[in-house]
Design a binder for these strands. Structure first.
Length: 391
RNA sequence: GCUGCGGUGACAGAGCGGUCAAUUGUACGAGACUGUAAAUCUCGCGCCUUUAUGGCUACGCAGGUUCGAAUCCUGCCCGCAGCA
């Protein structure tokens, strides 16, 4: 199900092929996020023009009515489904402290003190997580708590029928201390075991990835990598809190990846800016998924080989140059900076769509360049090129 | 000409004696966004500075009443509506 096709000589970077029921994924690859069984603002037709290889949707968001996710997406290529483990964090602790899983290096708002317990919608037990429906404007009748645990997540993911599914875990936060992270890790490991057992007995047409947790703590990360890595998962993901600085996140990869089986694919959950991709690949990551290309596109931020810029800013209002020099995406073929800027300013619905197409294309294309570079033993060179231009 | 209503910061539009440099929305500016709570959110948006429970100038214009006026009174200017 996974074959390695080439290896970089000076790092753990490699190219490979993940074989799934809906086709192959050439790795390293970017997996495009389509949580609600749609890549926001894109039609299935649009998606085909973005060089996308795989899409990831989410069991939590699709739990109410889990149908064939390939049909829902209108996408017959490889699909992953996340287990909902991230929502255990983001709707709970994440909302309570208004943080993501990467703590800002500018801790102005001191997330530890920023504390709104009433916003926490999640109650975690050893069995799983109880979710409260987010309160909409007014007069919401309490729908009561909804339960999601390893069995439920597997059941949903099975019904969704994605090619690659993830074990149910708890994503911890950089704000969590060692004690909590250790406790959570034990719980996550137990949940993952349940997922794997179900997979081995019942849901075996799908590929199941185990997830390494353990926060920023080296011994916990190593313990997790050894434990999860020793189990017959089809692939492995690195998830959870990535510490308090960017470099720490990649230390975590260096601690854990050597402990995972060489011959299985590795996924880096939820990370994917340009530098992250280079550092992740270097550390031995095969696939990434991240919200950055799609979300930031909607917010008017475009990515390119020179980094990013905000097309919505007025400095572009008279700029008739291409959005990205030499970019072959449908957006760049259709519009200049000025024209896309105008669409954003006019709140034209197509603006976000054009921007999304560009960003998704750009990241997919970057991965392609990385693949080629690894094969040609020019990975370091490509990385230097990118980071140099970005100054 | 008379009567009525109205003139508030880029715009729309609150305020109708002190707590008003003035609610709110839009526009504009800056920032954020990393397994989507997010086509979203935060901050700024009269001028000055030592950036502050700071100073100054401000709610059509000019006066007045008052300890105190965007808010009340008088006159003028302008807009809209009706009547001559």
């Amino acid at each position: 199900m996974f074959s390695i096709t080439s290896k970089d000589l000076s790092s753990r970077a490699r190219t490979g092929l993940i074989h799934t029921p809906h086709g192959e994924i050439e790795t390293p690859a970017y997996v495009i996020v389509g949580t609600h069984a749609e890549v926001r603002t894109l039609t299935p037709e649009d998606l085909k023009h973005t060089q996308t290889q795989a899409v990831i949707t989410n069991a939590y968001h699709l739990r109410e009515n889990p149908r064939d996710v390939h049909d829902m997406l209108g996408w017959q290529g490889p699909i992953m489904t996340d287990s909902g483990g991230f929502q255990v964090f983001s709707l709970g602790f994440g909302r309570e402290h208004n943080i993501g899983k990467v703590v800002s290096i500018f801790p102005e708002h001191n997330a530890k003190e920023f504390h709104e317990p009433e916003k926490n919608l999640v109650r975690i037990t050893d069995e799983g997580a109880y979710f409260l429906a987010p309160k909409s404007a007014e007069g919401t009748t309490e729908k009561g708590e909804q339960f999601l645990g390893p069995k439920e997540s597997m059941q949903i993911q099975h019904k969704l029928g994605a090619d690659i599914i993830f074990a149910f875990d708890e994503c911890t936060s950089p704000l969590h201390d060692y004690e909590y992270t250790k406790k959570s890790l034990a719980r996550t490991h137990a949940w993952e075991k349940i997922c794997l057992d179900l997979q081995l007995t019942t849901y075996n047409f799908q590929l199941l990835y185990g997830i390494v947790q353990g926060g920023e703590f080296r011994d916990l990360r190593e313990e997790s990598a050894k434990y999860i890595g020793s189990m017959p998962f089809d692939g492995f993901a690195i998830g959870g809190s990535l510490g308090r600085s960017r470099s720490q996140a990649f230390d975590i990869l260096d601690w854990t990846i050597p402990l995972l089986p060489e011959t299985k694919p590795r996924h880096f959950l939820g990370i994917g800016k340009i530098e992250d991709l280079f550092d992740g690949v270097r550390a031995g990551i095969d696939t990434f998924d991240c919200v950055i290309p799609t979300r930031e596109a909607r917010h008017g931020r475009l990515w390119g080989k020179r980094g990013y810029f905000d097309i919505i800013k007025s400095i572009w209002k008279d700029d008739a140059s291409p959005i990205e020099e030499g970019c072959a995406c449908p957006t760049c073929e259709a519009l200049t900076k000025k024209e896309l800027h105008e669409r954003f300013r006019a709140k034209d619905k197509s603006a976000a769509r054009y921007a999304t197409i560009h960003n998704v294309f750009f990241f997919n294309n970057l991965m392609k360049q990385i693949r080629v570079a690894i094969q040609e033993n020019a990975f370091q060179k490509l990385k230097k090129q990118y980071l140099a231009i970005r100054n």
